[in-house]
Design a protein around this nucleic acid. Sequence first.
RNA 1: GGCGUCGUAGCUCAGUUGGUAGAGCAGAGGACUGAAAAUCCUUGUGUCACUGGUUCAACUCCAGUCGAUGCCA
Length: 301
Amino acid sequence: MTDTPLVIVVVGPTAVGKTKVAIQIAQQFQTEIISADSRQFYRQLQIGTAKPSPAELNLVKHHFIGNLDIEQDYNISKYEVEALQCADVLFKTHHSIVLVGGSGLYIDAFCKGIDVLPDPDLQLRSELKEKLINQGIESLRLDLKTLDPDYYATVDLANPNRIMRALEVILQTGTPYSQLRKQQKAPRSFKVCKIGLMLPREEIHDLINHRVDIMMRNGILKEAGQLFPHRHLNALNTVGYKELFSYLEGNIPLLKAKEAIKTNTRRYAKRQLTWFHKDKEIRWFSPFDLENIFNYIKEFD
RNA sequence: GGCGUCGUAGCUCAGUUGGUAGAGCAGAGGACUGAAAAUCCUUGUGUCACUGGUUCAACUCCAGUCGAUGCCA
């Protein structure tokens, strides 16, 4: 063990058991937990985001759970700043901290940093969205081709969000997006030990299906009903809620909505795995293999 | 028991006027820098139920068997 502070990162597909393992690690190393889960931030999203239970929150102090209102406009840059500040404070009294979550991009922002860009101009964003709807993606592509040919050459031209974001930055800053994307690691004062939790795909699917059944029993439908008036907020473009909104709008039967939640959660888990598999710093373990996880962390430190 | 319909990809089904087959869904793989539980891309070989027959050639026609289902008794 060195004097350099340590961030113990716990990642993995949804429902694999990150919450439990993170708590056990935090207890073992006598520290606290920072969440990196872009939906557990929102205090109104209770049942559908599989937040740690009150009992679990009692065992170990968690940060960034239920700290936002769904109306709040939030983004990864704000998270990077706030989470690093939180870590700095914790490092004054702790050698290590636990960072747990399923949002790969947020984990990366914390560990490596992201490029410095101005806060998004939401007015501009909605104008671009309108242009997409009225004039189609081709017109946005043409704009991008003119304003930033370098980025145009590498971006996924089928993905409207990518193109709109680039245009948004370019129009706001007057600088090509490709020039602003340095993609250099920001200096960090801590070491990062990445633990990936993994189970055979079939078991992950079973856990997901089971968890959705429990959410239904615990009243996610009622919660979705209360949130229904806010369904257009980004915070509610979330698996578990959007399918129930579709039911509440009368578009699909409840059983279909429930199945769609399971399907979309499975796909979410798959996307998470695609992201995390790319990260070669991650060492993979079964969520039940605590002994080896502890040993690996000690060795790493 | 009689008559009829059906049996094709994990599921729902299309199709082949006889030249060994294709959609949707599910699944799989991938991308990803301020919306990321978001957004987007790629991906379909399966004893065409089984056993025989006719044919140069059968998944397709014929017979039988098995299974499902409907109607009649």
